[in-house]
């Protein structure tokens, strides 16, 4: 049976309105509700289903970030994950944390935990990088199956259906492997009360990047964060002639 490692990132909840800090150094996070990156939730759901189907023996969730990252680990545990690993990263290192750092950490932990599968969300809804799965596979030198919308386990390999531009691609790869979860892979469950209570007793191990020999020193500097331009208000025109007139006026035709 397989051991599965899933990455769970703590991000600003997507139902919350994002606000840029007045000094343009980032977005306001203080007092703002966070939750698990929704694509990571899909990854967790898939891992837990693998366990329920007796394909996985143990599911381990990892979150890199400040102390509050333990909240998303608790959510993962309540969904059915067996244990959590919190890699504590704070301050400037956290502010400039990039997929390259996270994938090094995930790769180290995959080796340490003897994982056969690493599943992460295809992207995080805050930085939209879409790099972590790919880089993790590179560090481990494992095959990668990104944008998965279906995962089937064979004897020694897995068959993954991928969402590619304009259609689906089905690939087979050997295990161990890294998978990134796309939107249609599954619909994550809500943790039930008994499981929320059980989750409180499940273990969360705390580590630092240093413990894993990973250097998280900033590699970038954020120059400026700005709101997208606000859409200009439209006008309602009475007829086609008026529309053509306007287009000419604006030099579009």
């Amino acid at each position: 049976m397989a051991r599965v490692l899933v990455g769970v990132k703590r991000v600003i909840d997507y139902a919350v309105k994002i606000r840029v800090k007045p000094d343009k150094t980032g977005v306001v996070t203080d007092g703002v509700k966070h939750s698990m990156n929704p694509f990571d939730e899909i990854a967790v759901e898939e891992a837990v289903r693998l366990k329920e189907k007796k394909i996985a023996s143990e599911v381990i969730a990892v979150s890199c970030g400040p102390a509050q990252s333990q909240e998303v680990l608790r959510t993962a545990l309540a969904m059915g994950v067996d244990k959590g690993i919190h890699v504590e990263i704070t301050g400037a290192e956290y502010d400039t944390l990039q997929p390259i750092h996270v994938s090094k950490i995930l790769a180290k932990l995959a080796e340490k935990e003897k994982a056969d599968l690493v599943i992460v969300g295809k992207q995080a809804i805050d930085d939209d990088s879409n790099q972590t799965a790919q880089m993790t596979a590179a560090y481990l030198d494992w095959p990668q199956a990104t944008f998965a919308s279906k995962i089937e386990k064979g004897d020694k390999d897995i068959t993954v259906t991928r969402e590619v531009d304009g259609g689906l691609e089905t690939i087979k790869c050997k295990m161990p492997a890294v998978i990134s979860a796309d939107l249609r892979l599954n619909e994550p469950r809500y943790a039930t009360l008994p499981n929320i209570m059980k989750a409180k007793k499940k273990p969360i191990t705390k580590l630092t990047p240093k413990d894993l020999g990973v250097d998280c020193a900033p590699r970038i500097q954020v120059v400026s964060v700005e709101d997208p331009p606000t859409r200009q208000a439209g006008v309602v025109l009475p007829d086609v002639d008026a529309l053509v007139g306007k287009l000419k006026e604006g030099g579009h035709v």
Partner: peptide, 15 residues
């Protein structure tokens, strides 16, 4: 009294 349930403080789930 309660057979099953779920609880959350995540705005998207509450919504």
């Amino acid at each position: 009294l309660v057979l099953d349930g779920t609880a959350t403080n995540e705005p998207s789930k509450m919504k």
